[in-house]
Structure formats: structure tokens, C-alpha cells
Design a protein around this nucleic acid. Structure first.
Length: 276
DNA sequence: TAATGGTGAGAACTTACATCA
DNA sequence: TATGATGTAAGTTCTCACCAT
């Protein structure tokens, strides 16, 4: 079931299930424009409310999908390190990054060599793709840095790499993966949130369907007593049943068409959605 | 207790795309 | 407008640690 399902009844009423977003959070994008600005929904931070509506067909429904700019760091040039591996050799040459490697200054290359020794010295061979396990201290410092900014500019990357005794490329990769994990986690949270919303709305939808059914039944029954003069219709204040005001023998006949007990109509104004 | 297979986490890599000069 | 450089997201591959058997 989607979040934009509508049930059109032959009564001219529409039961709609939708999502509305009163406001949405927009992550401020840094001074310079950067990576692809893809829509990024964060349902748990958005002022977001599922909605069920019961109305006339022909009404417009729909939900606005906010477009949120992803966070973006400084895009100063030059990626200082390009690690190659037996698995990446072919595509590395076809990649645009190859050129970057070529453009490294001799100083930068020297920095790379120095920092590379740290973790490369125990490699089996030139083609080994050794998996480095970051120490607790390294991870902690990276985490701390990530809290401050989820993206790094080249200077920050260099400094952090020096501090951690890692290659700048490793720091860069760590930040990429960290951002990915953060997003994945957020997606999972959003997913759970939407599941709950869906359940709530499904229940509400079911209840409204039931009420709609009752209304339709009522509409069919209506003509039978609507023929009577309005003055003859009275409502019992205690049980809220409609009576005819006729006493005696006729009263018992007419009371057969009494209204059902007070219906539990859903009122969106006095009974706001309990969803989420 | 050592060997083995399954599995999850995460480091490293590739590709596609947006942006800017 | 076309092009190359660059950074990032998304997806994939691969390694390693851990656990059950």
C-alpha cells in the first residue's frame, strides 16, 4: 500500500490516505555549491504528519516532497592520495582521478610517501589490499572530528591524517563511509517511523471505511422518514433517537425507523489524527 | 582445542553525477 | 556552450574479527 491511496466511493465521497508536511528542514548548504543536490528526506525531523481525509471526490490530494540540500564541505582542489589495488587497476586508469595523481606536487607526494609507510610497511606485496583496522584512539579522534564537520577540506584532511598517522586517502575514505553509515542509520529510523505511521493510518482508514458504510446505509434509510413533516420528528435527549412525536399506536410503528445510537464520526478538527 | 563455515562491520574501491572555472 | 577538474553519494568488493558447530 502506498501513502497516497485514495478510495473513491460511488457516494461521491473520497477516502484519502496521504502524507503532509507542514514544514520541512532544509540543511543549509555551505557557501560553495558542491555535490549532487539530491533530495534527502528526514521524516523524523520533519514536521510531518500522516493524514486521512474523508471528503468529496475531485478534491486534490498529494504530498509535498521537500528537497533538502545535502551538507557539503569545502571543495578545495587536489586529492592528495590515490591508492591503487589489483582490483582497481583497470578502472583507475579509466577514472578521472588518475589525472589528479599526476598533478600532485613533489611535496605532496613526499607527504604521501611518509604517511604511507606507516600502514604499508606490513603489507605482503605491492598488490595486497590490506585491511587496516583503525585503533580505538584513531576511531575516537575521527569520530570527534566528524561531529564537528561531516566533511573535510584538504587542509583538515591533511592535518587529521598527520595526527592519526594515516594517509589522507584513508581519512577521506573513513569520512565517506561514516557519512554513508549515518545516512543508512537515519534511513532505518525513518523506515521504522513510516511503518508506524502506516499502521496507524491503516487503522484509521479502516475505521473511516466503516463509518462511510454506516453513512451509506443511513442514506438509504433516510427517505422512509424524511417524508414526514419536520415538526413530527423529535429526538430523545437521552438516547438521541429520532422519534415522530406521534403518540399512541402510530408511535410504536414509526419508532421502528429510529436513528442508530450516536455514531462515532471522526472529526478531524476535534479529534486530530492520533497517528505518530 | 583446533579447524571450518557463516556473517556482520567496515575499509577500500568504482562509477555516476553535479558544480565550477 | 564545451570541457576538464574536483568532490560527493551510492553501490560494490574485499578483508577481518567473531561466533557457532
Amino acid at each position: 500500500m502506498g501513502f497516497d491511496d485514495h478510495i473513491v466511493c460511488n457516494t461521491g465521497l473520497v477516502l484519502g490516505l496521504g502524507l503532509t508536511s507542514a514544514t520541512h528542514e532544509e540543511i543549509p548548504s555551505p557557501s560553495k555549491a558542491g555535490p549532487p543536490k539530491k533530495p534527502c528526506l528526514n521524516f523524523t525531523t520533519m514536521n510531518f504528519e500522516p493524514s486521512l481525509t474523508l471528503g468529496l471526490s475531485g478534491e486534490g490530494y498529494g504530498h509535498q516532497v521537500p528537497k533538502i540540500d545535502v551538507n557539503r564541505g569545502c571543495d578545495e582542489p587536489v586529492d592528495l592520495y590515490r591508492q591503487t589495488s589489483p582490483h582497481s587497476a583497470v578502472s583507475s586508469f579509466s577514472s578521472g582521478r588518475v589525472k589528479r595523481e599526476r598533478d600532485l606536487s613533489s611535496e605532496e607526494i613526499e607527504v604521501e610517501r611518509v604517511s604511507s609507510r606507516v600502514s604499508d610497511e606490513d603489507e605482503d606485496g605491492p598488490n595486497a589490499r590490506k585491511k587496516l583496522r583503525l585503533t580505538k584512539e584513531q576511531s575516537a579522534l575521527l569520530e570527534e572530528s566528524f561531529k564537528q564537520h561531516s566533511t573535510l577540506n584538504p587542509k583538515q584532511k591533511q592535518a587529521l591524517a598527520r595526527q592519526l598517522n594515516l594517509r589522507p586517502r584513508q581519512v577521506e575514505v573513513w569520512f565517506q563511509n561514516r557519512r554513508a553509515r549515518t545516512k543508512l542509520k537515519q534511513t532505518e529510523v525513518d523506515c521504522e517511523f513510516l511503518k508506524k505511521c502506516c499502521e496507524t493510518l491503516t487503522d484509521e482508514n479502516r475505521r473511516l471505511q466503516k463509518e462511510l458504510h454506516e453513512l451509506k446505509a443511513l442514506k438509504l434509510a433516510q427517505p422512509l422518514y424524511m417524508h414526514m413533516p419536520a415538526a413530527t420528528l423529535t429526538m430523545c435527549p437521552s438516547c438521541e433517537r429520532i422519534g415522530s412525536g406521534v403518540v399512541g399506536e402510530n408511535a410504536s410503528k414509526i419508532s421502528t425507523f429510529s436513528m442508530a445510537p450516536k455514531s462515532h464520526f471522526y472529526n478531524p478538527f476535534t479529534n486530530p489524527s492520533a497517528a505518530c
